[in-house]
Design a binder for these strands. Sequence first.
DNA 1: GGCGTTTTGAGGTGCGCAACTCAAATCGTG
DNA 2: CACGATTTGAGTTGCGCACCTCAAAACGCC
Lengths: 352, 352
Amino acid sequence: MNSQQDDAPLTLRDVAAAAGVSLATADRVVNGRPGVSEKTARKVNEAVQRLGFRPLAAAAELARARSWRFGVVLPRGSNRFMLDIADNIRAQADWFRARRIAVEIVETDVFDADTLAAELAGLPGRFDGVAVVALDHPRIRAAIDDLVAAGMAVVTLVSDSPSSRRHHYIGIDNIAAGRTAGSLVGRFLGPPRGDGAGGSIGIVTGSGSLRDHAERRFGFGQVMAEEYPHLTRLTPVEGRDDPERNRALVRRMIADTPDLVAIYNTGEGSIGIGEALAEAGLARKILCVGHELTPATRRMLLDGTFAALVAQDPGHEVRSMARVLHALVSGQEIIAAQEHIRVEVILRDNLP
Amino acid sequence: MNSQQDDAPLTLRDVAAAAGVSLATADRVVNGRPGVSEKTARKVNEAVQRLGFRPLAAAAELARARSWRFGVVLPRGSNRFMLDIADNIRAQADWFRARRIAVEIVETDVFDADTLAAELAGLPGRFDGVAVVALDHPRIRAAIDDLVAAGMAVVTLVSDSPSSRRHHYIGIDNIAAGRTAGSLVGRFLGPPRGDGAGGSIGIVTGSGSLRDHAERRFGFGQVMAEEYPHLTRLTPVEGRDDPERNRALVRRMIADTPDLVAIYNTGEGSIGIGEALAEAGLARKILCVGHELTPATRRMLLDGTFAALVAQDPGHEVRSMARVLHALVSGQEIIAAQEHIRVEVILRDNLP
DNA sequence: GGCGTTTTGAGGTGCGCAACTCAAATCGTG
DNA sequence: CACGATTTGAGTTGCGCACCTCAAAACGCC
């Protein structure tokens, strides 16, 4: 016979009673409204602690009774990965609607700082929260800071602008991703031949100005220099994530590099690399490691053209973006561990 | 000047109006209550479709106004990974409280079918939903089916009982995990020596009766036989996830196997393997691949004793368990993609 | 047409909280 | 002590939905 029926859900009323104050005062403290003496506030906070009170999420949300408008700024007409992001946003439509969140995808030329900055400048008023695939550029940094200053919740997506005041970055550590690719290449190639030579590694990259690609090259180079000095890194070639350009570049790379043993693609358009290798009869002969899981890379992983992919889960990123923006605007807590985006290694055997 | 103020949140009342029925009738249809003619139900469902109505999650949850009791059946006094699971459950306490969910961890001897079955038999009435680290055994299957028959939401955690009627399995595909480990070992060892010999691979496993370990061995063996026939697999030795036993076993393995080139541990207690190798001065000389990220395996990954880990994220599993059980008991939808637990490959470079 | 049955409508209640108003009590200060 | 300022209490409203009751209407059948 317990004197306290313990299933009784703990409400703010209980906290007020325990603290010896009225519901109104407890509410003022919990919601940070003014007009409460420090002493009283302390009493209430102690009661909250002692009883382990948490406002019921559903009730809080319902009572706030407002809707949110989120904008997601994505590169226009972009690669498969960005299309996946967009698809995942649409797939989350129900989740958003059930939370009174209206999401609008804003397509723009992310790669031009002025265009992107202008686009960002037009967002306040239209949205309560914004996710943006950022460029690491002073003008973008300033534009993002302006958004934050305007009271919007701002997260960077996939590509960060770390010096800005964005509230959160949702994406992977691209240096770690590059290092991981480096380790895979080094390990898969095995120890140097008898004469100490290891061969050359071609590096295909999107563009020099994208922070994520630059970081991947950096991480890759770090590991190579430290751990596999017998391997030669060729100068990175820029295919701008375009399969056709990549194909041409790899074709030339093959012709120019007799001891080519591996190719690392920091970005998209891996299919072009696979095609160039197939043309030359070198598929599965030259070790390939790339990024992101797409229908094309999946196929090449299965047929052995690519040995491994270093990837990030766009579904996770979109859900994380949704949760983080929602938590930011509605003042909820963010579960850091849940929002950490992992650098995934995908082999043929653990394809999702 | 839009005639329809589009920010007006769509409520059930709007649906009722659009369908030309009363709120009560619309409510009956949406919540599957009886006493509505088929014709009327169709009208309402059409309106729901047409308007894209979703009940506001917060309001629905609040209105249901009930609390849930979940039980999580874990092996008693178990290994680091299971302790991580328990820790993550405790770390989710706030999340649970905010949803009026009381979680109780039930420790028992999971490895004895009778004990586990008896424990499960005592759960109905105590809980609304149960997550259980299952054994694949007819008696457990029957016990799980009884829970489901008693109206409980039941998910298996980490280790499945696929023939049972459990509503959901939360864990990885262990065959894929074993295959992944096999590919890593095969790739990392590189091509056979000139004489075609590849060396021997030791396999350390927990126990023959655990389904997850058996599946990992199976997947590992598959890949080895298919892709790396030049490598010899030694007969698996059972260390019951105990570091001390593993150490003794590996010590003997080293002594008995001159051409030992790699060790694969399907389970826990990897630290014992590292110690045995260090004693023999073979750390980093023999390729090691194991499972699960723990403080010990993290350390050995960093110092190079282990080349890679195949892992599952206990945090993700616990969150997924919470979401799935909550969705099951409260009749919500489950986002399959979100609940899929990935087979992760962890190298030194992508350590979370 | 009259009966019983099924279907529908109208309305109420409460979930826990946020946000507000207004009056009462308390406080500090001269 | 008196004054105004600050703090506190009491109470109300509404968020959107689930769930319930009761009466009215429509229906099917003989």
